[in-house]
Write a protein that binds this DNA or RNA. Structure first.
Lengths: 344, 344
DNA sequence: CGCCAAAATACAATCGATTGTATTTTAATA
DNA sequence: TATTAAAATACAATCGATTGTATTTTGGCG
């Protein structure tokens, strides 16, 4: 017995014509007479024909599909980026396969294998916290599959990326704390194999330096930046022999963890400690006090990265050109850091 | 010129053997001698061979891929459901294509077409707010592609679904408000084409009835349950000629919108109005006062739905059996509704 | 009516892997 | 050594759509 799937051959046989004509008709080729097209289209609808993209893609060696790898889709930044990616891709007739590395290098590698096996036309990647070797990306390169990093990129030379200026944003965030009269400012940083966290740390340090505030090693704590880490880190800070009155966190999640703990033990924000986060998660505007943070438009970053990738895909020359696009961020000032009356 | 893709034929030619043997070796078939397998595997690695799943899937008419359609991945409930789906699918060697309908029926239909064209082995669906006709689901049925609804299901007879008892949960939420001495309880409901919102409304009504509290039409407002709706709806409620002292929202997002507005205009929660939401979004535990809500484990629901689907896929008999699995929920009591001292 | 170019359609190879069947090789036994 | 069953490998069709080339059909014109 046969599967009940309708193919162009079935349609051809029923109509007593050749399957190549059916194929061309369904693709609206000018080589088929309108009368024939009508006949074929009618019959195709009647039979509920639905093209088998596996066959089509195999023959054309083109899938009109992009792979997207993000650490986790539940992060507001990433889900907005995905929204931007989908919009840009959809506009050009591309589909998107969304995958989560869940911060695991192993999963990231395995996802790339799957994407390659499925012959996606290109890949958008924001790397995991564990990602320290880049073999899997080299593999994409060898297979001539274009890819673009966004947000969490890595430091390999020949790639395109869409990022923000982490150094500058972190500098601004720290500067803001200084302007709010913080003098002992702690920093919760992320895994140092990620460029973004390295750069945020550098920005923090540079601001201190510029304002002649001594840098103290023990005020910087690197972690995975989960909510739990917020409480853990802040406890460490509070046990230090000097009073910390400012905190710049490399993401909002860890900042929120810290705020929750500080509230619980009765430390006042921003009076006792002024806090700034990074990313502008949904929660950040809701928490009390609302969290001052760096807003980065995930949607825009996703869109731009996708357009860059699509450009590479359709334009062989551009595959060799490696661009870095920097998207603007802005500091959103909220209660968690505002200790000074604003003057008009 | 040829593409630079390595195929089993290339490997076969180099080694002077037949491609069928290469294929069998790579699939670890007992029909190939170990010595030959070793030779083939070595060469395959050397050349960076990566199977073309398009070809393989086409031949086998099996993709080991599940389609997932959710309204939007940024909702905590859905991203946890996806995590559960991925885990269950991954365990059985299945991949997952995640798609967002963005609450649009048209997109939902188009996604289903794409999934069919890509010959997914099964589909998991949580329908959009606009979904009022079910032709596209019938299409899946005709094509013999098994599918399972989760959370937002629809009322067609021959399907399997994994849901919660919305009626019961809503009853419990409303009852809780009553126990907290609310006597005029408003309800923010969702689109009435969705079963879940119909049932939550029914549960609300049943609780009032049971406690002999008069039901008032004007205290029920249906909307899309976005954050904006929260403020809009609560304004309407406040303009009514009687004092409302309780609010049960069909999701957390609209509840949070309402809370923000109420805080802004100085109405006290829970003293003036006690509020209960539905879904337990991340934000709900962070907002002040923390939101009492119904917790539904997205992860578990996703897992169960996936296992049900995989069962149907691998077990032809089960395709005809239609089950409804009901997953337990629980009420998380937080500050937004607690107006009465707890007794030990 | 016959000729010819253009239009329409048919033929057949192809994409890369899988798999049932046929053939060859191996090795064990008489 | 000859025989033979079992093991290993080769052959060839197939999945369904696409596409370059070949063939047929159409219709316009002298």
């Amino acid at each position: 017995m046969h599967t009940n799937e309708v193919t162009i051959h079935d349609i051809a046989e029923i109509l007593g014509i050749n399957s190549s004509t059916v194929s061309r008709a369904l693709n609206n080729s000018p080589r088929v007479a309108q009368k024939t097209k009508d006949k074929i289209l009618k019959k195709a609808n009647e039979l509920g024909y639905q093209r088998n993209d596996l066959a089509s893609n195999l023959r054309k060696s083109k899938t009109f599909t992009l792979g997207v790898i993000v650490p986790r889709i539940s992060r507001h930044f990433f889900s907005s980026a995905i929204a931007g990616i989908e919009e840009a891709a959809f506009k050009e007739g591309y589909n998107v396969i969304i995958c989560q590395s869940l911060e695991s290098l192993e999963r990231e590698q395995s996802i790339i294998n799957t994407l390659v096996a499925n012959r996606v036309d290109g890949v958008l990647i924001s790397i995991s916290m564990e990602t320290e070797n880049y073999k899997h990306f080299k593999g994409l390169e060898q297979r001539n599959i274009p890819f673009v990093f966004f947000d969490r990129h890595c430091n390999i030379s020949k790639t395109s990326k869409v990022v923000i200026d982490d150094f500058e944003a972190a500098y601004r965030a720290t500067e803001h704390l200084i302007q709010q009269k913080s003098t002992e400012i702690a920093h919760f940083s992320g895994p140092q194999n990620l460029e973004i966290y390295k750069n945020r740390f550098k920005g923090y340090k540079a601001a201190l330096e510029n304002y002649k505030i001594p840098f103290r090693e023990e005020l910087v704590i690197a972690s995975s930046l989960m909510e739990d880490d917020g409480a853990k880190n802040i406890k460490k800070i509070l046990s230090l022999p000097f009073q910390v009155d400012g905190l710049f966190c490399a993401n909002d999640v860890v900042a929120i963890g810290a705020i929750q703990y500080l509230k619980k033990i009765g430390i006042k924000i921003p009076e006792d400690i002024a806090i700034v986060g990074f990313s502008n998660e949904t929660t950040s505007s809701v928490i009390d006090p609302a969290l001052t943070t760096i807003h980065q438009s995930g949607f825009k970053i996703g869109q731009i990265a996708t357009n860059l990738l699509l450009d590479k895909i359709s334009n062989d020359d551009k595959k060799q050109i490696h661009e870095t696009i920097i998207v603007k961020t802005n500091l959103i000032e909220r209660k968690s850091s505002l200790r000074i009356e604003k003057h008009e």
